[in-house]
Nucleic acid binder design. Structure first.
Lengths: 229, 229
DNA sequence: TCAAAAGTGTTTCACTTACACCCATGA
DNA sequence: TCATGGGTGTAAGTGAAACACTTTTGA
């Protein structure tokens, strides 16, 4: 057993963003070195000694993309001995979400650079086993959005109601009855009207602007409430 | 950075069993060495070079307890730098279930030895951060039992309907309306009557014996079915 | 023959679903 | 003034919850 290469530990981040035009998108970076040089991959890298896993993810995201996520949870740990051609590398994958504003920011600052958003319907081929990781993350996102208010992490603090509707339609991948969607989600009581109206784009009545009330949501959870779309 | 101790990787197994008298129980081992010598801990240990994580879990379980689980899924990865007093050890925790028969077997074979079942309502204090791991696993078990048929992994192939009822009452930690429970779970169609009757214990009408039809369940899942208690 | 445990029929109520209609805006 | 997108009221259908009753067993 002596002199065997020890198992290495990395983290990878599957970060989703949302914009009305692109739909749900995934943050990818282009690899600068072998293996898989020039291919697209998840942001991530080795965990430093004495470093927390979450810290490692946030550090790598900052370094490689400049992005700060406002939601982060652990996804799954991938440990197949040959997922990295060089040696046994175990990777703890995280699942992150950014608000629309951060989404647009990256788009502006790194145009033609090595970090980019890809709509999840048009993903390039990916390095390592990252395709598998991404698939799992997408499943998780689609499942989770149904019973936890993570949809709001993809929208700005204030958002037109119609955006929320479009986001859910995109995530659940089906058209939903407008009437029933609004009745249901408003009935929970954690959405607040701001009183503002969206400025109309093209024609049609402008949508009302809402805000997610995290405090109210936490109270409801304490009361044993359980929301589901 | 040279000469820093590399991060070590371990696996831990949170294995649950069920018996009518003890309720839901957790499999623990008594540590033979420092640190935490003689304290109770989750079965587990270091991942070998080129070893899959699941293989490592199953190997450690076999070595330390002789138990073979019939359900195993990854739970969470714990990576806090100081969760082990010796050095930075990252542990991938798994969540396992064994059927009643295996449960009773361990009870018989290792009586007064170093592996034992503890009812989850009467757990001893645990080594490392294992208490936290166990809490997460219990939450997962309670959540998951509501929308996935993992309850059957804790019962034998054939079981009296009343056992299923008691198991669910124990897991959900509330009394449930007998009439409605049976109507609901039987309506899904993945439970089969065997035609047998349980031999009565004490007085009262003997319960009918059922069997979980995994094939039928898989079909239902494919059809987009989604069960929930 | 009685208490205990298990099995079953039916009504009530709440919530989802579906449908229809009204309102505000730009072209 | 009309097409488009957004907001709202309500009837019909479906399924869970509650309740009451029957059956089978050992004491």
């Amino acid at each position: 057993m002596q002199h065997e290469a020890p198992i290495k530990l990395t983290v990878d981040a599957v970060v989703f963003g949302y914009a009305k035009n692109d739909g749900v998108s995934l943050l990818l970076v282009q690899r600068a070195y072998e293996p898989f040089k020039n291919e697209w991959a998840l942001p991530g890298g080795f965990v430093l000694a004495e470093e927390k896993l979450e810290t490692a993810v946030e550090r790598e995201l900052k370094e490689e993309t400049g992005i700060h996520v406002n939601y982060l949870e652990q996804l799954y740990t991938f440990g197949d001995p040959n997922r990295d051609p060089r040696q046994h590398v175990v990777s703890v994958a995280y699942f992150g979400l950014v608000k629309s504003s951060a989404y647009l920011q990256l788009k502006a600052s790194t145009d033609a650079s090595d970090a980019r958003w890809f709509p999840i319907k048009k993903l390039p081929s990916l390095a390592f086993d990252h395709k598998k990781i991404v698939q799992l993350a997408i499943e998780r996102l689609k499942m989770k959005v149904r019973y936890q208010p993570i949809g709001f992490e993809l929208l700005d603090k204030k958002f037109p109601f119609s955006d929320l509707e479009k986001l859910y339609a995109a995530l659940l991948d089906k058209e939903l009855n407008r009437r029933n969607f609004s009745k249901k989600i408003l009935s929970y009581g954690f959405l607040e009207e701001t009183g503002e109206l969206a400025k109309p784009e093209g024609r049609g009545r402008p949508s009302m602007i809402y805000r997610f009330n995290q405090k109210r949501y936490n109270e409801l959870i304490k009361e044993g409430y359980h929301f589901e779309i």
